[in-house]
């Protein structure tokens, strides 16, 4: 079949039905703009949450009397666990140096310490911070280990909060996506209703169903694509003029609103626009294609 004919028909009909096309395009653009801005903020927050989660570490304080070989063997053993990303050994001397560093403005604090009471420790970072409790439990009670600290309550609260935040974000994105799809189905149905004569004539002269569907499908996808591009341009301007200022004024938080994220979002919006256009016109056409 001649694909060019379908594209030609789609472009001609975009031009000749430009009012309806404009309506559909602006609907797609607005829906995707709202969806995109929300997703952008949500994803940025997600990045932020992830960076908080990454900071979750386990601190293992070692007994002073544990022999160095055993400590070394333990370190190697912990590294070999599949949940563990890295184990850093902090010797007694290093701990003291850090302590002195930290309180260098309070010499009396340092002077009050006789000798070196600080224990050596491991700082364990995990591949997935969700495993922190499991790994910590496994470490507790070993003979080389004095104490395992991982800020249990803080970690559990953090995960509870991030779970809820993510669920709400996902729910909003789904709702907004559904709303956009409905709006677009209605708009395209109106556009097709305005052209039902064309469809009925196509059927009368014996056009097969997919032959009737394809130009509408391409038209819907074209509208979705243009709408997505408009939404992306608007999101870009919002990012440059607004988000980056926010990020600067909140520089103590690791917020980026980065270009990487923007590119990924743009790609998703284009895919979403194409899908919404195609899906919308198929749903809208179904009623008109019953034999």
């Amino acid at each position: 079949m001649r694909i060019s004919w379908f594209f030609k028909e789609a472009i001609i009909s975009l031009k000749r039905n430009w009012v309806m096309s404009m309506a559909a395009i602006s609907t797609v653009a607005l829906s995707l703009l709202v969806l995109g801005l929300f997703a952008f903020v949500a994803l940025t927050l997600d990045d932020l949450i992830t960076s908080f989660e990454r900071q979750v570490e386990i601190e293992v304080f070692l007994k002073d009397e544990a022999p160095f070989q055993e400590v070394q063997a333990l370190q190697e053993k912990i590294i070999s666990w599949k949940e563990v990303k890295n184990v850093k050994y902090v010797s007694k001397e290093e701990a003291l140096r850090k302590f002195k560093e930290k309180y260098k403005d309070n010499p009396e604090m340092i002077e009050a310490i006789p000798g070196n009471p600080l224990p050596a420790s491991f700082q364990i970072s995990l591949k997935n911070p969700k495993n922190v409790v499991r790994v910590a439990k496994r470490l507790e009670g070993r003979k080389e280990i004095d104490e395992v600290k991982y800020g249990q309550q803080v970690v559990e609260k953090l995960f509870a909060v991030t779970k809820v935040v993510r669920m709400i974000g996902l729910l909003f994105i789904l709702l907004l996506g559904f709303a956009s799809l409905s709006l677009i189905v209605i708009t395209i149905r109106l556009a097709i209703f305005a052209r039902r004569n064309e469809v009925s004539i196509m059927r009368l002269v014996g056009a097969s169903n997919w032959f009737i569907r394809l130009p509408f499908l391409l038209e819907g996808m074209g509208q979705g694509l243009i709408g997505a591009i408009i939404a992306i341009i608007l999101i870009h301007f919002t990012r440059v003029t607004f988000f980056e200022k926010i990020a600067k004024s909140l520089s103590f938080l690791p917020i980026s609103f980065g270009f990487d994220l923007f590119l990924k979002l743009s790609a998703s919006l284009i895919v979403a626009g194409l899908c919404i256009g195609a899906l919308g016109s198929s749903i809208a056409l179904r009623r008109f294609l019953k034999v």
């Binding site: 079949m1 001649r2 004919w5 004539i201 196509m202 002269v205 014996g206 056009a207 032959f211 009737i212």
Partner: peptide, 10 residues
């Protein structure tokens, strides 16, 4: 149009 929808050549 009647020929195009039947996929006839230009």
């Amino acid at each position: 149009f009647a020929l195009e929808v039947l996929g006839r050549s230009q």
